[in-house]
């Protein structure tokens, strides 16, 4: 029954959004779960985390200079918030044919080299990336677990200074999660950021 509802909901939302130029989730929407392959070969879904209060979903990659600049900050977010119920899940959305540096082998190497404490998943068909509506890397989604449905609480950038972490004045993700943890309204719900376009597969 749950699966049928999910399928019907996906079909409905899919139909509604195909006509629009910008597809993807808005803040407040319930996001779909997925089953994507991790660098260790295992499949990972949001539903695997029965204890999680939510998630920090990071559409990110190996190759984009912005993703590289934010890599440590994504690791830091996991270290700060996993124990509070908000682990990071990283998803690489790029087409490895267009961007060989983002191949599965390269993802494995990076995750090992940098000791990623979170899963680094590959979105083979780019279907999840399209559903979520990610456009650049890195592109972040904070999800809240609401009775095992995943509500989008924040979409966008990590903070307001990619190049100089020491000069960051707006910590969007940190503020969003702290607001959710304290049952307060998320102050800045969505932000935009310059970044590398996601490398979409050719038709």
């Amino acid at each position: 029954m749950k699966t049928l509802t999910l399928i019907l909901l996906t079909m409905f939302f899919g139909a509604v959004f195909t006509t629009a130029d910008k597809t993807g989730y808005q803040v407040g929407d319930y996001a779909m779960d997925f089953k994507l392959k991790n660098v260790d070969g295992e499949m990972v879904s949001l539903s695997d985390y029965s204890e999680a209060k939510g998630f920090i979903l990071a559409f990110t990659c190996n190759t984009c200079p912005y993703a590289v600049l934010y890599e440590q900050r994504i690791i830091d977010l996991h270290e700060s918030f996993a124990s509070k119920g908000f682990p990071v899940i990283a998803i690489n959305p790029n087409d490895p044919i267009k961007q060989p540096g983002d191949s599965f082998e390269e993802m494995k190497t990076r995750a090992t080299d940098k000791n990623y404490p979170f899963p680094y998943l590959v979105d083979d068909t780019q279907e999840i990336t399209r559903s979520y509506g990610a456009t650049n890397t890195p592109h972040m989604y904070v999800l809240k677990n609401v009775n095992d449905k995943y509500q989008v609480m924040y979409i966008g950038a990590i903070d307001n200074n990619p190049k100089e972490p020491e000069n960051v004045t707006k910590t969007y993700i940190v503020d969003a999660i702290n607001a959710v943890l304290n049952k307060k309204d998320v102050p800045v719900k969505a932000t935009k950021a310059i970044g590398c376009t996601i490398k979409w597969k050719s038709a």
Partner: peptide, 20 residues
Amino acid sequence: DTDYNSWINKIEQSWSGAIP
């Protein structure tokens, strides 16, 4: 100006920030 969220909408509302 790396505080992108503060100005992207001033240039173009529909722009996600992706380049080109």
